[in-house]
């Protein structure tokens, strides 16, 4: 990916000098301070940082779930004032983000219903999604009957059914075992290429951030602010075994881990 191609791409999401404070004047707490960030179309941007640095808050701002105290968040140049279907959010706590009374199929259908897709077209749209995330044998299961990995796949499938241009993912694989996590990482990268989706991905795992990202944003805590933005020049498609062993990957990992140790200290 050359810098020329990058600069020619449109901005998908942007934060301009965004700050967020809680509480009234006097006793207010600053969660994020003067964060400026641009996520380009079809890019994968990963965010890492010590806990309490405002990663999730930044995602919620970009999703339109909360409004900044100062500055502006924008989607394709237009201010974000409320959540919208083009910005799909994959929450970390998938159990709470699924409707337990709806089957796998019906949970995905929720996104179609919100798009006012006629009911008779649902099945033809849901079937490929089920195959894509590997849930085709679980179409009539309820979420509680699925393993954590499958539940998170279901949430991702529902988000894809929104036909979003951006996927905002908040530590989506944090609660999953290592093997499932790596399989889902590869699936997410495949999806981003296939459906040309922009991805904003929060993680506490440095390796995951490097493996997935075109760029990695490191946040510093107290108050949350951008410490560094690092370009990841690893070739794609990436491979769980070989990519993670390349000198370039290890250099990135060394640098970012060093940075995180400094930030957390």
């Amino acid at each position: 990916m050359t810098p020329v191609a990058d600069s020619s791409r449109r901005s998908a999401l942007s934060a301009q000098d965004v700050s967020l404070c809680y509480g009234r004047r006097g006793s207010s707490r600053t969660i994020l301070q003067n964060v400026s960030l641009e996520v380009r179309s079809e890019e994968i941007v990963c965010v890492i940082g010590p806990s309490g640095c405002g990663k999730t808050t930044l995602l919620r701002l970009l999703a339109g779930l909360i409004a900044p105290s100062a500055g502006e968040v924008a989607f394709r140049g237009a201010p974000i004032t409320r959540p919208r279907r083009e910005l799909a959010v994959v929450f970390q706590d998938y159990t709470k983000a699924l409707l337990p009374w709806r089957t796998v199929t019906d949970n995905i259908a929720l996104a179609l219903e919100s798009r006012r897709v006629p009911r008779h077209e649902h099945q033809t749209l849901i079937d490929p999604l089920l195959r894509q995330v590997g849930l085709d044998r679980h179409a009539d299961f309820f979420p509680a009957q699925l393993s954590g990995g499958l539940q998170q796949r279901l949430q991702i499938a529902r988000c894809l059914a929104q036909q979003p241009s951006v996927l905002l993912m908040d530590e989506p694989f944090g609660a999953l075992d290592a093997m499932t996590r790596e399989v889902l990482q590869d699936e997410i990268m495949r999806l981003s290429v296939a459906s040309r989706t922009t991805i904003f991905f929060i993680t506490h795992d440095v390796e995951e951030a490097i493996y997935l990202g075109d760029r990695v944003v490191a946040l510093a805590p107290n108050p949350g602010r951008i410490a560094e933005i690092m370009d990841i020049d690893l070739p794609r498609p990436r491979n769980q075994l070989t990519t993670r062993e390349t000198p370039s990957f290890l250099r990135c990992r060394h640098h970012l881990r060093e940075l995180l140790y400094t930030l957390a200290a």
Binding site: P83, R84, R85, V89, A111, S114
Partner: peptide
């Protein structure tokens, strides 16, 4: 979280009450 899901799907108030 459940209400936030309905918001990200841009689901209206009445539909939110009935479906969520």
């Amino acid at each position: 979280r459940l209400i936030e899901v309905s918001r990200t799907l841009e689901i209206g108030r009445l539909e939110q009450a009935l479906k969520f």
